[in-house]
Amino acid sequence: MDPKELGKWSFYRALIAEFVATLLFLYIGVTTVIGYKHQSDPNLNPAGDPCGGVGLLGISWAFGGMIFVLVYCTGGISGGHINPAVTFGLLLARKVSLIRAVMYMVAQCLGAISGVGLAKAFQKAYFVRYGGGATELQAGHSVGVGLAAEIIGTFVLVYTVFSATDPKRSARDSHVPVLAPLPIGFAVFMVHLATIPITGTGINPARSFGSAVILNRHEAWHYHWIYWVGPFVGAAIAAFYHQYILRAGAAKAIISFKNSNAHV
């Protein structure tokens, strides 16, 4: 629980960092999505220019690139989570306290709502028309497929976070802490390439929640639970895999238990 954190300025500074980072992440990401849909709108572009807008690749770069930038900027302040699923995974691995994890998630969700609200203010003429950047299960895909895509995508992200920030690896390879934001950003980029055609890519409950709140239309809330359950399950699997399989946490616990009993 660590309630002593509530009396530290560093705790509130970290919350502010998570709020602002998630705000910027959603503002850039959602604005990019809306801009692309406007530029590639067949009603405005009857010729159907295949190069109209940034495309799937550009949207993926927008989300992945912003995560790279924001993790680099906030890593030394809050850890650069910017995602309730990442926070949840680190909580399960006992790398953050319960109080910090809950407050981080609140700050992230509020930041996401504010970021999408800012995007709507800047793109008022196009926001609702082009779906507000909301994540939706794409036509032709079942709920099971969408849920699996979110689980696997979040697993890739959270597994990358654990690997890039592993303290044992950092001690052995001094360059790892500096490079950590790069593989994390690339993980987000790659997952977007794979899952945008399936779910629109959530892998971040705050990202989906912020868009759904501001757009507030049926299609944004329909199957919204996928964007919470999938990322949390994926994060839990990643935490278990890294801590208990790769780092042999389960084996160490069993050995420690046997040794303690042997001395009784």
Rank of each mutant, 00 (worst) to 15 (best):
V143C: 10
A262Y: 07
L92W: 05
M66T: 07
A134L: 07
H218W: 15
S97Y: 07
V145Q: 11
S163N: 04
V106C: 12
K95V: 11
I59P: 00
A220E: 03
G55D: 04
S174F: 10
L23I: 12
L90F: 11
A107M: 14
F63W: 08
E136R: 15
S78M: 03
R247H: 14
S260Y: 08
V20N: 04
Y244G: 09
P231A: 09
P183F: 01
G7D: 13
L70D: 00
L70P: 01
F63D: 00
I152Q: 06
V264H: 13
Q243C: 13
I254C: 15
T195D: 12
A101Y: 03
H222R: 08
A212G: 09
I254T: 11
S10T: 10
W221C: 03
G75P: 02
A62M: 03
T165A: 06
I59K: 00
H218N: 11
K95H: 10
Q243M: 13
N204I: 05
M66I: 11
A139G: 13
A149I: 07
N261T: 10
V233I: 09
L215K: 04
D2T: 15
H263F: 09
A251C: 15
N259M: 14
F232T: 11
A62N: 02
I203W: 02
I99W: 06
W221H: 04
I237F: 09
V161S: 00
V145P: 02
I198P: 01
F209M: 14
V20M: 06
S40C: 09
P177N: 05
G202N: 08
